[in-house]
Design a protein around this nucleic acid. Structure first.
Lengths: 348, 348
DNA sequence: ATGAAAGCGCTAACAT
DNA sequence: ATGTTAGCGCTTTCAT
């Protein structure tokens, strides 16, 4: 004869315990509790019964068992946010606004940090394994990213990506509409007489296409100016790396007179680097950042920046909620966040 | 007669599908896959069978169902990290080092952002509901925090808190051993002739006890000096708020000649604020931060700071892993991270 | 207005 | 070395 099995050892109270304490069936308890994304018709339970159940829950300290509920409902009411870093006010804002947009729909947010394609694949794997219902993916990875997204989209993982390089194929893409704003920044600098430009990129080297750098380069070309490769340095994402990179750049015999950074973090580090070499801003170097974070306003001089007037990440969450709620595969959408150029003291 | 029930609709492949495809039983599949925290004795399966299963998994694109596995095993191999913000390199480091320490034990990390006691309670609730096996809790909340932690500890949630105010009662506490270092900073400033001190706190007002401020105040008292309440301002956690607060402070008719900030973020904002008012550092104002983040080294002048020599968050994760692995309630532990004072250009 | 019971997909004790 | 089978705690259909 087969197998008895491990009975409940010494575990948390279950719905059956609540039902017993309240003198009702587990069905009733389930209907009363049927919280969050529950689509129970709770109205079928009388006020009196409802109260008895609530009392029993309090009395025995019952908490619902998520894995059991998720297994049965085949959903988790949880969304995963993948971020490539957690180190700037911008990151903080993204996370909190996404969470705030999710909350009214009864969904919770988990964040995972993914600095490589592999980690990202692992994280998206957890969605496929039922850890979350969908994911918002932010990152700067380029090589292989599109293919990976395609694969998970094909496997049915609902996703929204924040990226200027990805094509929406089975998922939505949110991009920054940065071309016009960055061109305006370049034009500003050229008008002010700058002829020699440097660029602080997120990363350089094979496979590291930096869309913002391409915009700068092509706009300069339109004015007959160049962005030489040796004036392009990497490190815009890390304050200390950026500081060192810009110092090296400014310490050359032929330094650029204008520096565009792919991020504000990098732009601010560039200000520090210039200070440390006793270069005046903007007289010796003009600096422009990207992102238009609040911090631009407290530097001396204030950092000019291309970016959104006021950041608003709510629509990103809404795209995903849409995919989650409409079971039929929705068509892929593309959301463009408008950017402008904000000239400030750092360009004179 | 009772109830047939919803059969598998149109869902992901299950272990049964794999078993069928491989011509073995689900038990065998389970043993072969028994990954991660699995305590299967996988050696019972022959090499040949193992391969057949792996092939079948590939062929039909099977992924394990986490909620089902978690329900059955009554654990998730997941740890929750609660953070009060995600906006500095320090935060990034905490998250990545915790994750790295967890990885070899087969555990994954979810992050939730909690800026209020309520949000924190909700997040810890998800652990009780089986979303994670335990939590690492970081925050600056004071009022009510200890009580909430006590409650969840009593409910059996394994926790490690990062805090200088909490007492370990049913959970472990990691604290910064900051007293000696901050005293050294104060002594340095007093020796240099400073008599009028200001302090940039995380927050002020009722219930907002700032341990670092208390250290400064009492050390000053030892030299017969005061830290007047009106020279204590709030905002150390947000660059822009800190900037405004310090500007106001320095713009008084009787500004402090030395400013201690409860954070490096605040200290750096203070440097910007001084710059913006054309005050020289350290001649007009000396500035000291707390945390000793890398960024201190790239400001001009470099920011003096009290903090750990090199941050190392690995031990924090290890405390929790210990609680998770040793089922018997371990005694509460306290881990002190050593701090030192690093004098740099910002104090002359 | 309420209850009985059938599984969701998996693990593991027991049998062979 | 592999298979049988009893649940884990919950939701939901159907019956009353």
């Amino acid at each position: 004869m087969p197998a008895p099995n491990r009975q409940r050892t010494q575990s948390r109270p279950t719905m059956a315990d609540v039902a017993r304490a309240a003198g009702v069936s587990v069905t009733t308890v389930s209907y009363v509790l049927g919280g969050r994304g529950g689509n129970h018709d709770a109205s079928r339970i009388s006020e009196e019964t409802r109260r008895r159940v609530a009392d029993a829950v309090d009395a025995i300290g019952y908490r619902i068992n998520e894995p059991a509920r998720n297994l049965r409902r085949n959903r988790t009411d949880r969304v995963l946010l993948l971020m490539d870093r957690l180190s700037s006010p911008y990151d903080q804002l993204l996370a909190s606004e996404v969470e705030a947009s999710l909350a009214p729909t009864g969904r919770a947010l988990s964040i995972m940090v993914c600095t490589s394609l592999e980690r990202m694949a692992v994280a998206l794997g957890t969605v496929r394994q039922g850890h979350a219902d969908g994911a918002i993916v932010q990152g700067r990875i380029t090589a292989g990213w599109q293919e990976m997204m395609d694969r998970y989209a094909a496997e049915g993982v609902p996703m929204v990506a924040i990226s200027n390089v990805l094509q929406p194929r089975g998922f939505d893409v949110v991009s920054n509409d940065e071309t016009t704003a960055i061109r305006a920044a370049v034009d500003h600098l050229v008008e002010r007489g700058h002829r020699r430009f440097g660029f602080l990129a997120h990363s350089v080297g094979p496979g590291a296409q930096d869309s913002r750098m391409e915009i700068v380069r092509s706009r300069l070309a339109g004015s007959g100016l160049a962005l030489p490769d040796d004036l392009v340095v990497a490190g815009a994402r890390d304050r200390n790396v950026a500081f060192a990179a810009v110092r090296a750049l400014l310490d050359r015999p032929d330094p650029p007179s204008a520096l565009v950074s792919a991020s504000d973090t990098g732009g601010i580090a560039a200000l520090w680097a210039a200070h440390s070499l006793n270069r005046r801003i903007p007289e010796d170097v003009a600096v422009v950042g990207c992102g238009n974070v609040e911090e631009c306003l407290i530097t001396v001089p204030q950092l000019s920046s291309a970016g959104p007037r006021t950041p608003d990440f709510g629509p990103i969450a809404r795209l995903l909620i849409d995919r989650l709620d409409n079971t039929g595969r929705p068509e892929d959408r593309r959301l463009r966040i408008p950017w402008e150029f904000f000239p400030r003291g750092s360009i004179g």
